[in-house]
Structure formats: C-alpha cells, structure tokens
Design a binder for these strands. Structure first.
Length: 618
RNA sequence: GCCCAGAUGGCUCAGUGGCAGAGCACUUCCUUGGUAAGGAAGAGGUCGGCGGUUCAAUUCCGCUUCUGGGCUCCA
C-alpha cells in the first residue's frame, strides 16, 4: 500500500455514532472516509432520509459483492449503483445463480456484518489501478469510463472494490436489507454485449421500514391486473393460441365496450369522424409509407395470390387512403378521422407482459389532417382531450417530447419544424414536459403521455405525433384558399394508447373496484327466496334497457353465500330483494363503493344509477 | 431476442423413480335462508408438448411451447 494516500477517520469529525456522512455546500454526499473538515458540511444521520438511504444502499451493494466473492471466488464485478427501488450489482460468475441462492447470499452477508468490518478508503493513480485490475476486464471496462487520474478503492476486511463511494463507516449500519430478485443484464446496457448476472436488493436504516416496504410490495402485487383480471374473469391468454394474444372474456369485454362507448361520444362531440381501414394491405403500400424499411422487423407478413401483404402495425395508411379518396378543401381542415384500430406488432417474446405489452392490441387511434399553421392549436386541443380523459379516471400523468430516432425518414429541417411545433404548443400554454432524445416515431416527433402503474412503473399510453413525412410520401393534398394544391400535415394521436394497456392500468389503479360507469356488472340482484325472483328479473330488465349491466343471483346457494360471491366480484351495487321490497316496490342496496346499506324506491334507485352513468362523460 | 426461475383437475397450490392429493369452483339432492362461505353426495387430471435414460418417469436429462422476474425495445 505504499504511495497510497489513506484517509483515517479523524475522531474530531465524528459528532456522534449516528453520523454516516456529510452533505457539502453543493449538495454532494461526502462520506466519513473522505471528510476532512467538518466546517461547511451538514451531517447525514443514520436514518431513512434520501441521502442516508443512498449511502446505506450503496454500501449494501458492496456487502453483497463481498458475500458473492466469498461464495463464488471466480466472480468479477462490473457496476453496483443505487437506483429508485434500491440497488443492484452486475457481475460475471461461472455458476448459475437462481432465486434460491439469494438466501445463501443474504446469510453470508449477515455473517460478514457480524465481523464488524469498518469500511476504509484509499486512493491510487489510474495507472496503478490499471495494473491492479489487469486481470479483471470488467473493472478495466469501468476504469475506461472514469476520466479522473486518481481513483478510489474501498476496503472492508479482505474485500476491495474500485468505487467512487460514498459508503457508511462500517458494516454495522447494514443490518436491514433484502435481496429481491436475480436477473440478467447486458454489459453496458448493450443488447449485443455479453449478459451479466444482476441481483437487485433493497435496504433501510431500520427493520420496520424494510418490513413496511416489503408489505407495500405485497399490496401492490394484489393489485396486479393479471391477478385481478383472472379473479374477475376479464381476460385470458391461451398457450396453444400463442403468446401476447389476449382473449376478452365476457366481464372484460363488457368493461371494454363501456370504455369504447364513452370514447365514441367524446370523439364525436370533438368533431372526429369514424373510419375503418383493412387489417392487411399490400406490401407495396408499406414500402411507400416507409414502414417496410423502418418497422419491417416488427411486422407480420403473409402472401396472397403470390403477392406479399403486411398485417397493419399502425392505422395511418388506411386513414390516408380514405383522405385521398375525395378531393379536400382548406375548408375541410382540420379533418379528424378516428378508428379503434386493431394492430399487430411482433414484440420480442421476453417483453410480453399481461395486457400491458401484447402482440395484438387496439388503439384509440386518430389522424388529424391540418395546415402547418393549425398544428399548434390542434396539438393543444388534443392535449386538452388527454387531460379530460386522465381527469375522468384520476390519473397523474407526465408528458415527454420525443425527438428524431436513429432509424427515421425525412429531412432534418422538417423534423426540427415538427419538433418545435410540439414544444411550442406545450410552452405556449406552460404545460410541463421532459425531453426524450431519439425516442420519436420513425416518421415524426411525438409527445408521449405516461401513466404510472401500481408498482410504480411508467407506461406510455397517449401519444401525439406530428408528421410531415407520410403526407409527402403519399402525395396527399388539399385545395387552398388561393386555389393552389397544398400538402396537409398529419397529427397521429391516441388518448388511451391502447385499450389493452389502458384497461390494465385502470384495473391496477382501481384494484378492480371500477367506477359504476365502467364496472362489467353494475348491479346484482339477490332475491332472498324463489318467490322474489320474478320481481328481481323485472328490475333487471328495466336496468338493461337503460344500458346498465345487471344480473340476478338465483343460484341454489344461501343468501349469505350469494352476497359474498357478488361482493367478491366487486359489483358496485348488490340489491337484496325480499318480501318487504316486493311489497313496497323498493330495493335494499348494499353500496360497495360507499360501503353502506340503505333502502330506496325503484324510482330513486333509477335516478341514482342514471346519475352515476353520467359521471362517465367527457 | 438474451439471462434466471417455473408449468400437477376450471382456479390456488401440496406431493412422489412404482395406485395422483387438498381447498375453492362445477353437477345433483336436501335446505327457502334478511346482508361476506348451510349440509350431503358426485364428477373432473395421459402431472404443458415431444424425445431420451430406466424393468418402471408426473418425478432424472435434452429440446420445445407458455408463464413469471429482469435486460434491451415499445402503446
């Protein structure tokens, strides 16, 4: 260790046993190993503050690496950062590591903690580091990314790791952790590179917080749309039919139809006209559009009468043909076509995920043909439409402006114009957004609307895309005021994104307790005895005529059992019908959403239900 | 597509190199009950598919389909 500058923990800086680091004037974390002067720094207590957890979790990642090194001596480590949901470490190992092995690693980590190692730091020159890790290509890869000439090494017991820190003073601060999952991860995030083993974990300052976190995860799992979807018989998949191809069961289809109807009305009152294009189009058309070249690997192709056809992965081409069919005037613009377009995309097998990521889905797709001058107002109108839908369901969402991707058609200047158009619409109305560099569609930039699911994952739903390219490729035009032929701009947009993904998120958002206007079965009548079934059936018919899905539960089960079954199906209103109700022409309601019971007359009940149907209006 | 882990009645899950198990659901019967599981009987599985090892495979091995957790990519 000659030449190494070693930082001793100077006792003067240790204000208490509970300090695990400091924050300097710039908000940076300085760990106790690095801190030299306590002036102008704020101590970080050993608690669950964001800064404290960052240090604790990073050190826990190191502790895990130390344990793995002891259990698998040939393992080599790449990077082990702190992420939103804890920490991970990527490493290469000869053995296969599975979920079961996590327990063994945790046990070893606990053993190491008992050895009460302190964590020390020393610095060496990059040159020395290159020599020191000459036999470790992963460490060399890490070193190659560090521009500094001096690098730091952290040491606990025999274990040393190249690291920038920060770390807790000793292992005694690392008692409350859990290794959560083992996964594969590409070296450097590059799909073509080697795949390393990654273990994720979480850590807190105290056991209670760790337990609370694990409980929260369990709760989130209960809301998983795949679980609720099976329980409520909303949708299914079938091994023989193939992966990523959802089947909508009656309950799910009823919910979906309600959503479709709400959206139909919302589109019509906003001046959209329904259209529909074919499911498959000749490949020549996909060549003209650029899909064949830019999106071909995601398309399903087939042959009919020796001609190649492509199943549509997007709906724009169909809408363009409909636009072209009749001559358009500037007076027609903006012209808005919408379609619940079924699309097929060959998503990689590993990315399929319940209804959130499938190979066949239906977009609430629309294309707005307008003049360049109209872009800003059209985009704004769409943003307001998005907001109305999000508010209806109480979603928080974020917007991202996605710019030109690597694989794209069209001139840079056109791209810039379109991108600026999107930004202007948002800036002009002071709507917040972030930039997703290179995340645009191949034909144009877009605004993505992202919603967070029960597990905190963000999903792209709505999207607004400005497109100068397809109008040019298909040579579409309108007659301007001065009788010249001009090219319109296309705005591609979806509000839900897809019914599949949106319903998945709705399911998790409501934990299956859908609002009345969406619930698959909205009212279930429970007649107490056979003699009350006729009255229940009459009421059911009245509701059905009003467009309210109602059922009568007249199975040969006890009253309690039938109420329990209805409750478990998450039906908003369970209505019990007995002698009293038949006699007075009333209903006894169990209101699942309000969690209360009360009696109403038939008329009062109808008024209440119709009122609640209206809540689904946008 | 890549890494890891799985697949046992409709569902949730036990279990085993030698006869396949439970709860719920389902069917029939009894029960007609006033707000979250009344009772009895019964039916239902080539242990995901194909191949191999073995006297014998649901169990061990290989491939494959599908599922789950990630990576990469996307609505």
């Amino acid at each position: 260790m000659k030449n190494h500058v070693k930082y001793k923990n100077d006792k003067r800086f240790i204000l208490s046993e509970n300090i695990i680091g400091y924050i300097d004037g710039h908000g940076n974390i300085i760990d106790t190993q690095t801190a030299q002067d306590p002036c102008g720094v704020t101590p970080i207590e050993f608690d669950n503050s964001q800064k404290a957890l960052e240090i604790i979790r990073h050190s826990t990642a190191h502790l895990m690496a130390q344990a793995i090194t002891e259990l698998y001596p040939n393992s080599q480590f790449f990077v082990g950062p702190v992420v939103d949901e804890g920490f991970y470490y990527d490493f290469r190992v000869d053995e296969k590591i599975g979920e079961e092995d996590l327990k063994t690693i945790e046990k070893k980590m606990k053993e190491l903690i008992k050895k009460k190692y302190i964590i020390e730091k020393y610095e060496i020159s990059k040159e020395e580091a290159l020599k020191k890790f000459a036999n470790d290509d992963l460490k060399l890869a890490v070193l190659s990314r560090i521009p500094d000439n001096v690098v730091s090494i952290y040491k606990q017991g025999e274990f040393e790791d190249l690291c920038r820190g920060p770390h807790v003073p000793g292992l005694r601060f690392l008692n409350n952790f859990k290794l959560t999952r083992v996964a594969g991860a590409y070296l450097g995030g590059d799909e073509k590179a080697e795949m390393l083993t990654r273990i994720y974990g979480i850590a807190f300052a105290d056991k209670e917080s760790l337990n609370a976190h694990m409980t929260m995860l369990e709760e989130a799992k209960k809301r998983d749309h795949r679980k609720i979807g099976a329980e409520m018989e909303l949708f299914m998949f079938n091994e023989e039919a193939g992966a990523g191809l959802p089947f909508w069961m009656p309950q799910g289809a009823k919910l979906r139809v309600k959503l479709e109807e709400i959206l139909h009305k919302a589109h019509r009152i906003r001046g959209y006209q329904p259209v529909r294009g074919p499911e498959i189009l000749r490949s020549d058309m996909w060549r003209t559009s650029g899909h064949y070249a830019c999106y071909g690997e995601n398309m399903y192709l087939t042959e009919i009468d020796e001609q190649e056809y492509g199943i549509k992965p997007m709906n724009c081409i169909g809408h363009i043909q409909i636009f072209k069919q009749t001559q358009k005037s500037y007076r027609d613009l903006p012209l808005k076509f919408y379609e619940y377009g079924v699309v097929h995309r060959h998503e990689k097998s590993g990315v399929l995920h319940g209804l959130l990521r499938v190979r066949e889905f239906t977009q609430d797709d629309a294309h707005i043909f307008c003049t360049p001058e109209q872009i800003s107002s059209v985009v704004l109108e769409v943003v307001e439409f998005v907001d109305a839908v999000m508010k209806l369901f109480g979603f928080n969402y974020t917007m991202e402006v996605a710019t030109k991707p690597e694989k794209a058609i069209g001139e840079d200047s056109v791209w810039e114009l379109a991108t600026q158009g999107l930004k202007d619409a948002l800036d002009g109305n002071s709507l917040p957004y972030t930039i997703d560099e290179g995340g645009g569609a191949f034909y144009g930039p877009k605004i993505d609307v992202k919603i967070t699911d029960a597990l905190g994952r963000k999903w792209q739903c709505g999207t607004i895309q400005v497109d100068f390219n397809l109008p040019q490729r298909f040579d579409i035009e309108y007659v301007a005021e001065d009788n010249t032929r001009r090219q319109p701009v296309m705005i591609h947009r979806a509000i839900l994104g897809s019914f599949e993904r949106f319903i998945a998120i709705l399911t998790e958002h409501y934990a299956g307790e859908f609002p009345f206007f969406l619930a698959p079965t909205q009212v279930i009548f429970v007649p107490i005895a056979q003699s009350h079934v006729a009255y229940a059936n009459t009421l059911k018919q009245v509701l059905m005529l009003e467009g309210i899905d109602a059922e009568v539960s007249d199975k040969n089960d006890s009253l309690n059992k039938r109420i329990r079954t209805a409750e478990k199906q998450r039906v908003p209103y369970v209505v019990v019908i007995g002698d009293e109700e038949v006699g007075t022409q009333t209903v006894a309601i169990r209101d699942r959403r309000a969690k209360e019971q009360y009696n109403l007359t038939q008329d009062e009940f109808m008024v209440k239900l119709k009122q609640q149907l209206q809540e689904g209006k946008i």
